[in-house]
Simulated assay, not measured.
Amino acid sequence: MAVRKELVGETTKNEAIYAYHITNSNDAEVVVINYGCIIKNIFVKDKSGNKVDVVLGFDDVKGYFDNSCFLGAAVGPTANRIANAKYTINGKEFTLPVNDGPNNLHTDMDNGFHKRVWDAEEGDNFVKFTLNSAEGDLGFSGNRVFSITYTLSDDNALSLHYHATSDADTLVNMTNHSYFNLGGQASGSILDHTLLLNASNYTPVIDSAAIPTGEIASVKGTPFDFTQEKTIGQDIAADNAQLKAVGGYDHNYVIDEADGTMREFATLSSPKTGIAMKCFTDLPGVQLYAGNFLSAKDAKGGIEYKARDGVCLETQFYPNSINEAGFPDPVFGPGKEYDTTTIYQFV
């Protein structure tokens, strides 16, 4: 096990950007950068023993300065959508940028945590990133300290451990927005990938704004049913109002028997490479996003990513949970630290 630090550029504010290469005994390698806690590369071996990069991204870190599709990014302090870009905690209303129709998406496109340089601490097989965020920053309460620790084990499990403390009640709902393509980042569509989701229910959305209705609906008999393994492409073009509203899969799934303990919630596989990814989390939900509107030029190797060239499995509290009484509570503060782990294991 080893971690190698490499200077790879600087921000427009002349802040140094470092890449941290974490390797294990199986010759797997994860590359993360201190800018946005971005997962830049994940190299694992395919069925022929060739190393394959299975996440979308950029060779030049300058590509992440725009990154409108959030490739590889740690999104925070709150991911996904908040209705009308406002919420209330303890009787006080907070407002966020209106950046997705009338709503808020992923906190702030230009100033969110994915656009900041984090402090970094290296270990034998991990990198811990830390960021301080003061009262009022980005429209949130509390003086907060956030950390994300990326750990690569010898059994090819990449662990993402999130932690935050706050001196006041505050909203926290972070995620990682990596786009996976287990056929290789340059291999095109992920519609041939097979997916198994241990989620018997999902949260339907109102319309193209993708705000949940508040209902928790069964997937049985619908195109949203991945409780039996099938390809992502099998039903994505079905005549279904929910799919048409957001151009395909871009919905929150309710993980079965989620009780705050670690659960295996998904298996994603590529027939091209034989690479499979098992997914675990202690969170209650996961956003399946099939890259319906993915677009990125000058990506790795100079290629252009197009719609459905990658798929996201974003663990989370449900979208707009803060405004839905029946959804899991994403408020943390004194006496209630934010502490959660998601694991992607490549087999």
Rank of each mutant, 00 (worst) to 15 (best):
G214P: 06
K115G: 04
V52G: 09
R308H: 13
F146D: 00
R263P: 14
M277D: 00
N26W: 07
M174W: 01
V145S: 13
P328R: 00
G335Y: 07
Y202M: 02
A2Y: 03
E93D: 11
L294C: 04
A237G: 09
N67R: 08
F180C: 07
N34C: 13
L182S: 06
D192V: 13
D53P: 02
K13C: 11
A157R: 00
S187C: 13
F94H: 10
Y318P: 07
M109L: 10
F126L: 06
G183N: 10
G221E: 09
F327Y: 15
A258N: 02
D192P: 13
F70I: 07
D169Y: 07
G101E: 10
A290H: 01
L71H: 05
K45E: 05
T222R: 02
K40R: 13
L268G: 01
G274D: 10
L152F: 11
L71A: 04
L96W: 03
A238H: 08
I275D: 02
I322F: 00
T340A: 14
C69A: 14
F140K: 01
I343Y: 05
G247M: 12
G221M: 12
A307D: 11
V145E: 15
N143E: 06
L313Q: 00
A266E: 04
A299G: 12
T213P: 11
H114K: 03
F70E: 07
T170M: 10
K92F: 12
K297H: 01
N34W: 04
F332C: 03
V145T: 15
N292G: 14
G183H: 10
L197K: 03
D46H: 01
F129C: 13
F113K: 01
T194R: 09
K62G: 15
A85S: 15
T130M: 08
V311E: 02
V8H: 08
T203I: 01
V311L: 03
V31H: 01
T340L: 09
F226M: 06
S270D: 00
A168V: 05
G326R: 03
A168W: 07
F346R: 02
F43I: 07
V54R: 00
V117N: 06
